[in-house]
Design a binder for these strands. Structure first.
Lengths: 225, 225
DNA sequence: TCAAAAGTGTTAGATTTACACCCATGA
DNA sequence: TCATGGGTGTAAATCTAACACTTTTGA
């Protein structure tokens, strides 16, 4: 293979993952204490380096899979973070990605083995390097996305109650919603199907369980919340 | 300096610029025929490589300045493009940026020296590598941005008519707008100031010239179009 | 004198928001 | 029996969208 660009400098390229979860009516992200230098012991996003035989997106998926063992994770790019001094040792440019997972699908032992924890996004500790900026931008993008595309379901179990769904949107938007107006809008979306199953965990009376029907959505994609 | 990451591979990192302009009631971008291998002769965005002593954002600004001689250009990151084979020769990951400039501010001789042209975005030729994807994403992001932040003025002269402003929004949104409704909304925005100057170029009767007042906007930032 | 762009208000319909009570159940 | 969350409809207010004619002037 010919080398075309000898005169230019190369950089290390990494990916960092903002992994969102929803639990206890709160939006959470998965962070851990860095186990490597530089920055050992500081709270940090989970990341990895991009290899030469994989795309940047593939590197992010691989990294997510390494951490969670999960596949088919919803993931979107947040952007490139490229300050000169963002890594204290070497020039490392990082591409941030956010992911949406259902916390119940993530095995707790695997989580502990990797030394990561679910942390309430409203009560995040200081983070390593520019990771706080990454989280901020990821959150903003996710908030916009979840308004216009049915991706919020990725944060919930397959079966969920309308109150759970409402609490999710409240956590993401940072404001309370009116129960009746919220349910009115849900009713208009045929792809949010009522099942005949009842959830008894959340209340004494029990609440109907719903599911997202992707088929129906694809036929008539008119999501708006 | 210590090397922490010896085991990982480095990549070339470039920036590519989607430079939007507005002329002849059409949204345009600045592209040129590649003067280097690989891809010599193909239509391409203007780009450059990231140096180790500058941030990625700085590299984009430097590249924009190299091409246009302009400073204080409005510029936002589009994202990282990192397919393995996006560059036929070497592994090059590129960070795309879009910029908004007023075509009148760009010296035509300088433009010709760099061999770039303003091309109607609705009639773009095929572009080198993944540049078409970059343009698509840039356009989508710009379209969203221009709805909620007063950045469209960057594409117009300091003094502009309401018809010019309307044509700009029509070009970006890809649909015609109602003149009366459009002007009603403009009137509500105090930071779009009517001057007592008249433009006689666009019509026989003459149209009032307006300007964007950033001070007023900062006091009461309520833009929405 | 006429073609071409500038400028100007009103109304119907659609959307959004505010709001309060009864129900079923487990503790 | 009572505390807790589940479930339901209406009306006012706001926002959006549709629509047509007069003015000015250079060619």
């Amino acid at each position: 293979m010919t080398t075309f660009y000898q005169e230019f400098q190369k950089v290390f390229l990494s990916v960092d993952c903002i992994i969102f979860g929803f639990d206890d009516n709160k939006l959470k992200i998965l962070i851990g204490k860095r186990q490597m230098d530089p920055g050992r012991g500081e709270w940090s996003l989970y990341g990895g380096f991009v290899r030469n035989d994989e795309s940047v997106d593939e590197a992010a998926l691989r990294t997510l899979n390494e951490l969670t063992g999960m596949r088919n994770i919803y993931m979107r790019q947040v952007g490139a973070f490229g300050s000169v001094d963002r890594d204290p040792g070497e020039r490392v440019v990082s591409i941030a990605y956010y992911a949406l997972i259902n916390v119940n699908d993530y095995d707790d032992h695997q989580r502990e083995e990797h030394g990561v924890e679910w942390v309430d996004i409203e009560a995040m500790p200081p983070l390593y390097s520019d990771h706080k900026d990454m989280v901020g931008k990821a959150r903003k993008l996710m908030k916009e996305k979840i308004k216009t595309e049915p991706v919020g379901f990725r944060l919930l179990p397959d079966l969920f109650t309308l109150t759970q769904l409402q609490r999710l949107y409240e956590a993401v938007n940072g404001e309370e919603l009116d129960k009746r107006n919220f349910r009115k809008r849900i009713k208009e979306m045929d792809f949010i199907e009522k099942t005949d199953l009842i959830d008894k965990k959340g209340s004494k009376r029990g609440a109907c369980l719903y599911r997202f029907n992707r088929r129906t959505y694809n036929e008539f994609p008119n999501f708006k919340l």
